[in-house]
Each structure stands twice: as C-alpha cells, then as structure tokens.
Amino acid sequence: MFESISAVTNSAGYLLEGVGVTLLLVGLSLLIGFVCGIILTLGQVYGPRFARWFVGIYVWFFRGLPNIVLLFLFYFALFPFMGLDLPAFGVAVVVLGLRSAAYQSQIFRGAIQSLSEGQMLAARSLGMTKWQAIRSIILPQSLRLSLPGWANEYPVLLTDSSVAYVIGVAELLTRTSQVISRTGEPMILYLTCAIVFILLNYGGMMIIQYVEKKVRIPGFGNNEAECL
C-alpha cells in the first residue's frame, strides 16, 4: 500500500506536467474550434451555395469519423503526404480543433437560427450593412445563446484529449502509462488519472457556469444551463 502511494507521489511532478499538456491541448483545440466554428457557421448561414455545401461536407466528415481514426489519418497519412512535418502535439491540436469546429459550428448555427428575423431587419433598417449587423447584433446575441451548448464542449474535449495517447502526445494518460511501465501499479495510477480527469472536468464546468451567470442578460435567452 505504501509503495503504491509512493509510486504516485514520486511521479507527481511528471504527471502534473501532463495535466498542463492536457489543459493546453484542450485550450488550444477549443480556441481553434471556436474561431473555425464561427467561420463555418457564417458560411453555412449567410454564405453562397458552395460555402453551405462545403460546410455540410466538412461537418459530415468530422462528425462521422472516430477521433482515433482522424488522428491516425492526419498523423500518419495526410500531413506526411502533404509534406507537413508537425509534432504529435501539433497534430492533436489541429485534429481536435478542426473536429470541435464541426460541433461548435452546429451549436452556433442553432443559436443564430433561433434569433428572430426581426433582429436582422431592425439592424438593416438602421442602415447597417449585412456584415455590420452580423458582427454587432447577431453574433453577440447568438454567442450568449449558445453558451450552454458551448460550455459542453469543454468536458467533451477534455475526455477526448486523452485519445492523443495513440499518437504519443505526452499528456496525462500517456505519462501515466509511462510511469506504470516503470513502476507497475496500474490500478492505483490509472484510478488516480481518472480522478484527476474527473476533477478537471467538474472543476472546469463550475468555472464555466460561473462565467455563464456573469454574462447572462436578464430576460434574455434560455436558463437551461446544463448542470450536474
């Protein structure tokens, strides 16, 4: 028992760095997903036909494939094929980010479509251009509306980030496995790893819920914030 605990404590620093890598991976992927997601949404809602067509294919592709297959495909095949030499971490960020963009774009799209048409009409009647209306009226409202759905992307990406293990990204799970191969104790170390993920999961959700409360506009939008 004592040895088990010391196995954890001795590697604590190494594993903590893994937590950092995991969080960085999740943060960067969320960011890429957010930016690309908005672009995809605007293309799908306001863009010309070929843009809608492209977004449709994009979403179908990234939502139809398992993470692990996407990672293999990009890491072993697509990027080398295109002559890109990204490190595993970079590939994981790009893949998780592009994939998250597919999901986030659909969250934003739902929010934009739930806004009444009157918002756009009112903005245009004041003499705004379409782009101005989108930027200063439609996006601020729809982003607030999509917060509950968007907040859900964090736990999804957090749990998905562990899949980066398969291409050797040195995140928490990979490091846990490395420590286990040195010290044994798979049960106690994997359980610890699970508990750390669970804490990161619910800790992050609590922060997000706090932010959600802060930016809520009285009487606007849904109060159906997912909580557990």
């Binding site: 749990t159 293990y165 799970l173 798979p186 994997y190 359980l191 790893c193 699970a194």
Partner: peptide
C-alpha cells in the same frame, strides 16, 4: 464517475488495472 472519466482511461483500468 463514468461521464467524467475518459473512456480510454476507463478501458486501461479494466484491461491493465483489474488484472493487478
């Protein structure tokens, strides 16, 4: 527990952890 724990970690617990 089972929503918060990444499935991959869960699989490792079952496959590598339980035998110990």
């Amino acid at each position: 527990f089972f929503r918060g724990c990444p499935l991959l970690v869960l699989l490792f617990i079952l496959y590598f952890g339980l035998p110990s």
